[in-house]
């Protein structure tokens, strides 16, 4: 075998470069975000409850919002009946963001952490904010 030493050095350098991103980011993950529930509308609630239960909302709110959109616009029915039988008016701006009136400290906190940028905000916006 020729040049065994050079091959081994080459392999070692390759391994270093290849593994660098993994080693570098190890242990330095950003802390899990805590979406804030500190809004006047939520404070005024007799029971701190979302439209559906919290676990469902955390895991499924993306599909849930798509269903809301289709029910309101395609089926023309803007009343959603939740699992407890309560009627909720379907609206991203006028329902979700009425309770969660702190979009920056709530929706955006999680989304920035997860690296998602919902395109909804190209048209919908935070009615509590001063900027469009």
């Amino acid at each position: 075998m020729y040049d065994t030493g050079k091959v081994i050095i080459g392999l070692a350098i390759f391994a270093c470069i290849f593994l660098f991103p993994f080693l570098y980011s190890h242990g330095s993950a950003a802390p899990k975000p805590k979406p804030s529930l500190d809004t006047p509308a939520i404070k005024a609630l007799p029971q701190k409850k979302c439209v559906e239960d919290t676990k469902f909302m955390i895991t499924t709110h993306m599909q849930f919002l798509n269903n809301w959109r289709d029910q309101a616009l395609r089926d023309g029915n803007r009343w959603y009946v939740n699992k407890e039988g309560k009627k909720v008016w379907i609206s991203l701006q006028n329902t979700c963001l009425r309770c969660h009136s702190n979009k920056k400290e709530f929706c955006d906190k999680c989304h920035n952490y997860a690296g998602v940028d919902p395109y909804c905000w190209d048209c919908h916006y935070d009615p509590n904010g001063s900027k469009l």
Binding site: S91, Q93, N94, C123, H124, Y125, P127, L132
Partner: peptide, 9 residues
């Protein structure tokens, strides 16, 4: 602005 209604894009 009518804050109850979205814009378009």
């Amino acid at each position: 602005l009518n804050k109850r209604f979205p814009t378009r894009m």
